[in-house]
């Protein structure tokens, strides 16, 4: 799926064209005089802080794009530009082909009410509302009748596994449960686009893992277009179709997890990838060869499987395996030697 993205003729759901976000009083003036060549240092000296520096990319329908970066890298700012919680200083952003920046306030509200959902790092639940009221909130804002919105909210409660706690207040829930409410709320209006701003960062590692699984499960069911912000590289690798790695407002590299691990574009990206256990990230697909019908055994492995999950059986079999895709069509063959190289090599 991911490989065909760039060549796709479909309009991407989200499209950014040289988006800049610069904080400071005379940001626009500085930006114009700099002619698109923004250097964080010179701007800082002029009293401006560069949040997003010339971001251009597109997110396809159903794709999960993860924006990864350390704090201050501008990842959250980028997300807020796209959700228009802050106004980009310059550049163009299109949502379903519509120009976000030229939208009227009314259009924007309509867009948010129907197409967007967002999950926040600190959950951002309304403390005075119960679980179900929180989840129903976006629906009620939209003007859905109380009974309908409550029914829908109840559905969502079940979806995120909080049944029986509808009438709890946020303060009575654990962090993980609160974020489930946040997720349910963001999904209540059945948005096409789902923004998640470090949704699991405030949670314990164990809960985080559990929530990631839950999240993958949900995405499997819902298949939304997602922009997911995180500072956790492992999380990014685990979840993403594509990862954008940001530093000082610049997207250093934007690629599939495999490609990033295998071919880091800059020194900065390389630092992240060095300690990554590749077998846990790479899929069979990334190390398979072209299909060689003579050599391959009849044992089949899926091209989307993570190497680690199959490593033991592959190594035990000692023969060249056949790689198939989802539809069981043969797409290549796999030499166990390559698996060994991934696991133990350099």
């Amino acid at each position: 799926m991911s490989q065909s993205l760039d060549s796709s003729k479909d309009t991407p759901v989200i499209k950014c064209e040289s988006v800049f976000k610069i904080f400071g009083n005379n940001a626009l003036k500085l930006l114009k005089s700099s002619n698109g060549q923004v250097d964080a240092k010179t701007f800082q000296e002029a009293g401006c802080i560069v949040g997003v520096n010339n971001a251009s990319f597109g997110v396809q329908k159903g794709e999960m794009m993860v924006v990864m970066g350390l704090s201050g890298s501008g990842k959250s700012t980028l997300l807020r530009c796209i959700s228009k919680l802050t106004d980009a200083t310059s550049g163009k952003i299109f949502i379903d082909g519509e120009d976000l920046l030229s939208m009227s306030n009314k259009q924007l509200i309509e867009l948010r009410r129907n197409k967007m959902g967002m999950v926040f790092q600190s959950f951002a639940l309304l403390p005075h509302k119960t679980v179900i009221e929180n989840i129903a909130f976006p629906l009620q804002i939209k003007g859905t009748s109380t009974l309908d919105s409550m029914e829908k909210a109840l559905e969502m409660v079940e979806l995120v596994g909080l049944k029986g706690r509808e009438n709890y207040f946020p303060r009575e829930l654990s962090g993980g449960q609160q974020q489930r409410v946040g997720i349910a709320r963001s999904l209540a209006v059945e948005p096409d686009i789902w923004f998640l701003d470090e949704p699991f960062s405030a949670l314990d590692p164990l809960i985080r893992k559990e929530m990631q699984d839950e999240f993958l499960r949900l995405q499997g069911v819902l298949n939304k277009t997602i922009m997911f912000v995180t500072h956790d590289f492992d999380e990014a690798l685990r979840l993403a179709d594509r990862i954008a790695i940001m530093k000082d407002g610049i997207i250093e590299q934007l690629d599939t997890p495999d490609n990033i691990v295998l071919n880091p574009a800059t020194e900065y990206v390389k630092k992240f990838t060095e300690d990554v256990p590749r077998e846990k990230i790479l899929k069979i697909e990334s190390i398979m060869d072209a299909y060689d019908s003579n050599n391959s055994s009849s044992t089949q492995v899926s091209k989307d499987a993570i190497i680690e999950t199959l490593a033991e059986s592959i190594l035990n079999s000692k023969e060249i395996l056949t790689v198939v895709d989802k539809n069981n069509e043969i797409v290549g063959s796999l030499n166990p030697a390559k698996v060994i190289k991934v696991i133990f090599g350099k």
Partner: peptide, 22 residues
């Protein structure tokens, strides 16, 4: 917290809704 305000905005609140309901 600013995130609560943002969550209200992302729920599609107009100014009055944001003020009186969030």
């Amino acid at each position: 917290s600013p995130e609560v305000v943002e969550s209200g905005l992302m729920s599609g609140c107009n100014r009055f809704q944001l003020l009186f309901r969030v």
